[in-house]
Design a protein around this nucleic acid. Structure first.
Lengths: 261, 261
DNA sequence: CGCGATCTCCATACAACGTAGAGAGTTAGA
DNA sequence: TCTAACTCTCTACGTTGTATGGAGATCGCG
C-alpha cells in the first residue's frame, strides 16, 4: 500500500509541476529534458517492473543523464511520483462517451478504474488522499460525479457514493494484482503453490475447530482458483450497485411522497 | 500498498514460523530471543512509526542484539512481516461473541477489520494474497464465513461475499489512514492545507469545464472536511450490506419458489 | 570426561537507495 | 564583454537488507 507519500513539498511548486506552469528559464544552458519526458520514462519503468524498481538513478540512466540532473526538473522523488500519477489518470479522460443512466455510468467508472490499475499497478502504492490535485485528477473526479448527477442524491451523497465506488475498486484490484504478482514473483502458479503448501498445512490445520473454513475453503479454492479476482470484482460490483440502487430508489420515493403532499 | 511482499521463501520454513513449530535446537548456546518476541518488538515499531521505520537493525537494536542475530530466528524481513501480520490478525479472534443474523454479523466483521487496520496501519502495505496462512488468518477466515452461513448463499457466494466486505474495508480504511497520515506528516490540518492550496488552485482550475466538480467539491470539502473518512466508511458499509441483502433475499425467494413447486 | 558437531551472535562488507554540496560548463540579459 | 542564472556532473553521507566468516557457547556421543 501506500509506500510513496506525496505532497511533502512546497504546494506552490507542486501545483506548477502538475499543471505544467514552468516559467521558461531565461538563462543557462537549454534543458535537455522535460518534466513530461522524465515522468513518461518513470511510468514506463514502474509499469514494467514496479515501484520498487523505480529509482532516480534508474530513470536518469535511461534518459542518459546522472541522477542529480533530475533534481533541476523535479524537487524530489515524491513529487515525481505525483506527476506520474496525474499523468496516468489522464488516460481515464480519453475514454469515450458516457452512457445513459447512473447505473451504467457508475459501472463504467468502476471498470475504467479497474483497467487503469491493472495497467499501472504501482498506482495502488501512491497516496492519493491529500494533494495531487493535478488537472487529470480533477477531471476524473468530475467525470465520476457526473455519473450520479440527477439521481436525487444530495451533493454530499454524490461525493460519498463516488468515494464508495473508488474505495471498493481499489480494494478489489489490490487483490487481483497481489495474486498476479505472487505468481510472477514466486514463479509458481497458484495450483503448484497449493500442491506444495497443502500437505504441510494439513498437519497443523484443525478442521474440527474451523468447520466452516474447512468446508468453504477447498471449494472456493477449486472453483475460483488460479486468479479469478476478476470474478470477485464483478460479483462485488453488482452487489455494490444494488446497494446504491436501494438508496436512490429511496430518494426517488421520498421525492414522490413530497410531490404527493 | 502493498510494499512488502511475502511468501518468497521456503513454504516449509514459513509454515513452521507461522505456526510456531520450531523443533527445539539440541545443541548450541541458548537462544536469547524468540520469534514471538522479535515479532512483538517489530509490531511495536511499525505501529508507532510505520513500516518505513521498520528495519532489521532497528528491531535488533531495541532487543539489544545486532541485526544479523535476527537471521537465526527468521529467514529474512519478508518472513518477519508475515509473522507480524498473522500475530496481529490474532486480535480479531479475541473479540467477544457473534451477533445473531447475517447482517449484524457482517457488519461486525467489517467494523472489527476497520478497527484492526486503524490500530496497525502498516497492515495495509502487507501483501496478504498468497501465503500467510498462519493460524490467525485461518481463524479470521472462518469467523467471517460463519457470519454468512445459513443465508441460503452457495459456498462460492459465501466466499465472494466475505471477500467483497474485506476488499471494501481495505479500500475505505486506506482512505482514512492516508488522510490521518497526511496531516501528521505535513504537520498541517486539512483546513490549513486547503487555505494554502485553494488560491493557487483557483488560478488553474477551470470551473466552467468541470461544473459538477466545482459544485460538489467545495460543499463536500466543507461538510466532510477534516477527516470524516469514518463517515464515508459508514455510508459505504450501509450500501454494501443493502446490496448483499438484495442477493440474499433473492436466494430466499428462489428457495421459496422451489418449495412451492 | 572430552571431543566435535551445532548452534547463537557479532563484525565486516557490498550494492543500492535518496539527495546534499560544490564545482564545471553553457547561455542570455545587461 | 561581463555576469547572473541555469544545467549537469562528481563526490559523499547515511540508510537499507543481507552474504560471509569467525568467535564462543552448549550438548550428544564415544
Amino acid at each position: 500500500m501506500t509506500s510513496v507519500y506525496s505532497g511533502s513539498g512546497d504546494p506552490k511548486r507542486s501545483i506548477e509541476l502538475l499543471w505544467g506552469i514552468q516559467e521558461r528559464p531565461r538563462r543557462g544552458p537549454k534543458p535537455r529534458l522535460t518534466v513530461d519526458g522524465i515522468a513518461a520514462q518513470a511510468i514506463a519503468i514502474a509499469d514494467a517492473e514496479g515501484l520498487s524498481a523505480l529509482s532516480m538513478r534508474r530513470v536518469a540512466a535511461e534518459l542518459g543523464v546522472t541522477a542529480m540532473s533530475l533534481y533541476s526538473y523535479v524537487p524530489g522523488k515524491a513529487e515525481l511520483v505525483d506527476v506520474m500519477a496525474d499523468r496516468v489518470f489522464g488516460e481515464l479522460a480519453a475514454a469515450g462517451d458516457e452512457p445513459e443512466g447512473w447505473r451504467a455510468g457508475l459501472e463504467l467508472v468502476a471498470r475504467r478504474s479497474w483497467d487503469l490499475y491493472l495497467r499501472h499497478p504501482w498506482l495502488l502504492q501512491v497516496a492519493t488522499s491529500r494533494p495531487l490535485l493535478g488537472p487529470n485528477v480533477i477531471a476524473k473526479y468530475d467525470q465520476e460525479l457526473c455519473a450520479v448527477a440527477g439521481t436525487g442524491l444530495t451533493v454530499i451523497e454524490m461525493d460519498l457514493t463516488v468515494t464508495l465506488v473508488a474505495n471498493y475498486v481499489h480494494g478489489a484490484v489490490r487483490g487481483a494484482i497481489e495474486a498476479a504478482q505472487a505468481e510472477q514473483r514466486t514463479g509458481m502458479s497458484d495450483d503448484v503453490w497449493w500442491e506444495q503448501y497443502a500437505p504441510l498445512l494439513e498437519k497443523v490445520f484443525d478442521a474440527e475447530r474451523y468447520p466452516t473454513a474447512a468446508a468453504v475453503g477447498p471449494v472456493a479454492g477449486e472453483e475460483l482458483g488460479a486468479g479469478d479476482p476478476a470474478r470477485a470484482f464483478e460479483f462485488g460490483l453488482e452487489r455494490l450497485l444494488d446497494g446504491i440502487e436501494v438508496l436512490i430508489r429511496g430518494r426517488a420515493g421520498e421525492a414522490a411522497d413530497r410531490d404527493r403532499v
